[in-house]
Design a protein around this nucleic acid. Sequence first.
DNA 1: AAGAGCAAGTCTCAAAAAGAGACCATGTGC
DNA 2: GCACATGGTCTCTTTTTGAGACTTGCTCTT
Lengths: 134, 134
Amino acid sequence: MSMLTGEVNGKRVAMVCGIPMDVENCPVRDVMDNIGGKWNSLMILSLADGPLRFSQLRRLIPDISQRMLTQTLRDLQRDGYIHRTVYPTQPPSVEYALTDLGRSLLGLLKHFVDWSVENHGAIRAAREVYDAEA
Amino acid sequence: MSMLTGEVNGKRVAMVCGIPMDVENCPVRDVMDNIGGKWNSLMILSLADGPLRFSQLRRLIPDISQRMLTQTLRDLQRDGYIHRTVYPTQPPSVEYALTDLGRSLLGLLKHFVDWSVENHGAIRAAREVYDAEA
DNA sequence: AAGAGCAAGTCTCAAAAAGAGACCATGTGC
DNA sequence: GCACATGGTCTCTTTTTGAGACTTGCTCTT
């Protein structure tokens, strides 16, 4: 992980790991802008065990609004993490499933889940110290 | 990664990996709420090589407002990822450095950076397909 | 000596994003 | 006939974020 200042399109920009952290040229930002959203990674985790329908997701994540559920699913579909299938039943049901890309990302997210559980205590402790002295 | 419905404090909640995905009781959400923010993980990556001062960070990430820079640093400090040191120089300078916890998270973020670079092409491709048919 | 610039922020106001909840068409069970 | 389910959209309000001026004290330039 080395950082230096590099040149992209004649502009000086910060480099992290040899990747331009520039606003337009940074793949990390481009990816993060989607999956870093409030609901996006939770959605991918929720689909880990298999496809779910719209209303199943809504029940699984009770504190998401329908509006944000729709939008999150669209965003994830657009970037290729999930696939949307409509079954012509009565009433029509819609199923959301992880793609290969989505499962690949899920592998990363699992590590993140483990890390969160391991370090949750330390974070809560740090928070209390900070709040006490402020 | 198994998901089922479990019981926490008498309430039925979704479980992912044996972790309650409930709003109040989920360590993953608690951690993610901070580092999932727009600037937070970028900030930790920026401090990877060593401590930086406020204005150095501002120059490194030109598209962050001072207001959000201050707030992001405070949030990260509160959760124990970074440490803030004031040097009584003239004018006083303030240095931000990763803590052990911050470096631990950095390890995860590096994997994320690698994944982003590897899969950026696939994501852009998926995006174009989606935009074309919509 | 006057003016500019930097340090690390705070403050205010405007714009964007998110949340709450009504509404839609269609069909089933009671 | 009534309530409920399906997968959403629409509008309204609240919360977040962004843009940019302002601060205090010191140094550097002219």
